[in-house]
């Protein structure tokens, strides 16, 4: 077969391919999604198709933040989980933190440049736990956390590199002039960390400390969700917040608990997923039934 007689089949094949692409674009790229959009207008689907709007504002499915203008939690509302979507619950920027289970060492911000640092996941967890503990008046301590709410992580310099005698010990997540969470380690005085210093030769050694294995602040209160838009919290976190919300709104705790129960979704078919309290709907219901009296 010579070159010339092959050409037409070569071209023909690609022409057919282009036509198939065009036909598919029309049928499954336009007719299918537009048809589905039309079907979605029927009653029973319409509300969901338009994003499950909530009368009080927003969507039942998308988490919201309940912070005041200064970024502090508004105490009369149930607080959602931490969020990595934008600056927090930015529904146009869903995102996860993507830090792994051994993300323990902070990059401490250099003086004058507060944005130059990067918190490790451990410090984020410790800081959140401390803040939630203070808000709810419970013990916010956790394993591997210092009492000032950062990771309890030592950088240990050893004379043999990774083995041998400790020669110098730095508390990596505690920026000077903080007082290290341990006075000494293996007989060596622990230093605070100087921002910008190079501790990469030190062996990273997290210290568990004596915090209880089951902290008072629930796990979902100190961890961000995968999309940053999780509208739910665990029943445990709702229980922790109930006294505060009841107090702030002048309600009985039993009444708040009843509402929490109403907005708790059970496991699907008894086995699917987890129990979850929808904070957005719960807070909207609280506002509807027991509005906070403006002082």
């Amino acid at each position: 077969m010579n070159f010339l007689s092959r050409m037409p089949s070569w071209i023909g094949r690609h022409l057919a391919a282009i036509r198939v692409v065009v036909v598919l674009t029309v049928l499954v790229g336009l007719v299918y999604p537009l048809g589905m959009t039309a079907i979605a207008q029927v009653p029973g689907l319409r509300n969901q198709a338009h994003g499950s709007e909530l009368a009080a504002g927003g969507s039942k499915l998308i988490g919201q933040s309940f912070l005041d203008k200064e970024g502090a939690p508004i105490p009369s509302y149930f607080q959602p989980r931490p969020s990595n979507a934008g600056t927090g619950y930015d529904a146009s920027a869903s995102a996860a933190g993507n830090l792994g289970p051994e993300s323990t060492v902070d990059v401490l911000p250099v003086k004058g440049q507060p944005d130059s640092g990067k918190q490790s996941l451990l410090t984020q967890v410790c800081a959140r736990s401390k803040a939630v503990g203070e808000l709810e008046h419970v013990d916010g301590s956790r394993p591997y956390c210092t009492s000032d709410g950062v990771g309890a992580v030592l950088g240990v310099f050893r004379d043999g590199g990774t083995t041998g005698r400790a020669t110098r010990v730095v508390s990596l997540d505690q920026a000077c002039p903080a007082r290290p969470f341990l006075a000494s380690y293996e007989g060596v005085t622990v230093e605070c960390a100087r921002p910008g210093a190079d501790y990469s030769k030190a062996v990273v050694t997290p210290v568990r400390g004596d915090a209880p294995a089951h902290p008072k602040v629930p796990a979902d209160a100190v961890t961000a969700s995968a999309g940053g838009l999780d509208p739910h919290i665990s029943p445990a976190y709702a229980t922790l917040q109930t006294p505060r919300v009841a107090r702030e709104r002048g309600m009985s705790e039993a009444a708040v608990r009843r509402l929490v129960g109403e907005y708790t979704s059970g496991r699907g078919l008894g086995v699917l997923g987890e129990l979850a309290v929808n904070v957005v709907q719960l807070n909207a219901a609280l506002d509807r039934m027991h509005p906070v009296k403006v002082a």
């Binding site: 996860a96 993507n98 591997y144 990771g151 796990a219 979902d220 961890t223 969700s225 739910h232 997923g273």
Partner: peptide, 18 residues
């Protein structure tokens, strides 16, 4: 995992409903 133990489970980056 250090963070997992600090948290008390592999909750970081998971959605409550799942």
């Amino acid at each position: 995992g250090t963070v997992t133990e600090a948290v008390g489970g592999q909750y970081e980056g998971t959605e409550t409903r799942f």
